[in-house]
């Protein structure tokens, strides 16, 4: 049932486009919406969570990969020697 979607490059492209559109829609929504529960300074900044989500994702990947390569990752069977 899923392969009609996943195996068809046109359809996966449509899914991607929908997600891109949603990204824009959510930022616009954030700019326009009324704000009630403001606690932190960044609650006043529209689009902050978009930026923070993206930066978090990149930071997690990059920092983890660096720690892994330099230190934590060992070949399989490391504990068996």
């Amino acid at each position: 049932m899923f392969h009609k979607i996943f195996e068809d490059p046109k359809k996966t492209k449509v899914i991607r486009m929908v997600l891109y559109v949603l990204m824009v829609v959510f930022i616009i929504w954030d700019v326009l919406m009324e704000r009630h529960h403001m606690i932190f300074p960044w609650d006043y900044v529209p689009g902050f969570s978009a930026l923070y989500g993206f930066v978090s994702c990149v930071l997690i990947i990059v920092i983890s990969k660096i720690i892994g390569k330099l230190w934590l990752q060992k070949k399989e069977g490391y504990y068996d020697k």
């Binding site: 997600l19 949603l22 990204m23 959510f26 930022i27 978009a50 993206f54 978090s56």
Partner: peptide, 12 residues
């Protein structure tokens, strides 16, 4: 707020 976090994490 959650929508943006999730969508932009997907983008990353």
């Amino acid at each position: 707020w959650t929508g943006q976090i999730l969508l932009f994490t997907w983008f990353g």
